[in-house]
């Protein structure tokens, strides 16, 4: 219970960063924090007490393994997260080239 709450607080820190920060770099980092919290929450749901990792080997009982399904979902999610981070970085660099700043309140005025 308290683990879920702490993980939710981590997610809220990411939302706080997106809503209040003006620096584009800080916004990208906040999106990353939200992604970490979401992945960690899914894996927290999968844990079973006194169990082992879901990889078969000699002398391991199948009935004492953690849930492998959220692990499979999160494994693909991590990769997509990196792809989107690279895309956000490229967009931020393009914006810097055009407006010479990372401040979103100054980027907002349209020109050109």
């Amino acid at each position: 219970m308290i683990v879920y709450l702490l993980c939710f607080i981590l997610f809220l820190v990411g939302i706080y960063g997106i809503l209040t920060k003006r620096d584009l770099i800080k916004i990208i980092l906040s999106i990353g924090i939200m992604g970490y919290a979401a992945n960690l929450m899914l894996i927290l749901f999968a844990y079973r007490n006194n169990s082992i990792y879901p990889i078969l080997s000699e002398g391991k009982a199948v009935s004492q393994m953690v849930d492998p399904l959220p692990q499979a979902l999160v494994l693909t999610s991590i990769v997509i997260e990196l792809g989107t981070t690279a895309m956000l970085v490229a967009l931020a660099l393009r914006l810097y080239e055009k407006y010479k700043t990372f401040d979103i309140t100054k980027i907002r005025r349209l020109k050109g």
Binding site: A86, V89, A90, L93, R94, Y96, E97
Partner: peptide, 10 residues
């Protein structure tokens, strides 16, 4: 691509 990107001239 990021390494080939020239930061000053863009």
């Amino acid at each position: 691509a990021l390494a080939a990107y020239n930061f000053d001239k863009g």
